[in-house]
């Protein structure tokens, strides 16, 4: 089976700074693929390129057979991106925000309603969806945005630090939401500097540092290869 996403020799330069030095990886259907690495490793840049926010300096990104440079609109139709520091429109009620976003993806009203109903279930925010997003806590906003990202059942959900800034309980809930959704055929590409989180969530991971992928594989295979108990130690040994 062809991979959902294929990244080949992807490079990105900001002036003289080389943020990505030619990274390659693939994401299979229904798989959670994790990019792990420290701050500034190039994780967010990679995700932003795939979600069409940034243009690559070189390399090739193919999604469901479409080339990123030629068909960015095809990427936007089938990909949902959750940025690390995303917010919702403060003056909009949670439910209105979901309605607003659903209409971009739905081909008709009934499909939009279906998306919103699904989002209501994913978010678990209940009656609070009738309140303005400006009154939400960070955890509630994150759940709302995650529901927005997953409600359309995208072919690929790109989640940048999905539990960033959340407390333990909220983080656990968000992780369970993500894990549950891949059972419905959604592929997930996520990034995190929390390696234990990625280990829990991901089917396969890539270790990224200073714009280069050091190694990739299933968490179990990597732990065996580097004779480590967890991915934090794997990463440290890979860097060394």
């Amino acid at each position: 089976m062809a991979p959902v996403l294929e990244v080949e020799e992807l490079k990105k330069k900001y002036g003289s700074l080389e943020a990505l030095k030619g990274i390659s990886f693939k994401v299979e259907e229904g798989e959670i693929f994790g990019l792990i690495g420290p701050n500034g490793a190039g994780k967010t840049t990679t995700l932003r390129i795939i979600s069409t926010l940034l243009t690559p300096s070189d390399g090739r990104v193919t999604f469901l057979g479409f080339d990123l440079k030629k068909n960015p609109e095809k990427f936007r139709e089938k990909i949902s991106y959750l940025p690390e520091e995303a917010g919702a429109y403060r003056n909009m009620k949670g439910i209105d925000y979901l309605n607003f976003m659903a209409r971009f993806y739905a081909s008709n009203e009934s499909e939009a309603r279906l998306f919103v109903e699904r989002a209501i279930g994913i978010s678990g925010l209940g009656e609070r969806l009738k309140d303005k997003a400006g009154t939400y806590s960070k955890g509630m906003t994150r759940k709302l945005l995650l529901a927005r990202a997953l409600m359309t059942k995208p072919a690929l959900a790109i989640l940048d630090e999905p539990t960033s800034g959340l407390d333990v309980i909220n983080s656990l809930e968000v992780r369970e939401m993500i894990k549950g959704f891949t059972k419905e055929g959604v592929s997930v590409l996520l990034s995190s500097h929390n390696m234990l989180e990625v280990e829990f969530l991901s089917d396969r991971v890539a270790l990224i540092d200073r714009g280069v992928i050091l190694d990739s594989g299933t968490p179990r295979a990597l732990k065996e290869k580097y004779q480590a108990d967890n991915l934090e130690i794997v990463f440290r040994r890979a860097v060394q």
């Binding site: 932003r48 979600s51 069409t52 926010l53 609109e73 936007r76 139709e77 990909i79 949902s80 991106y81 959750l82 940025p83 520091e85 995303a86 917010g87 919702a88 429109y89 403060r90 976003m101 971009f104 993806y105 945005l145 927005r148």
Partner: peptide, 14 residues
């Protein structure tokens, strides 16, 4: 400021 631009730029609209 509200960090909504990135999301808006990735939805299927030109």
């Amino acid at each position: 400021q509200n960090k909504t631009l990135e999301t808006l730029l990735t939805v299927p609209i030109s």
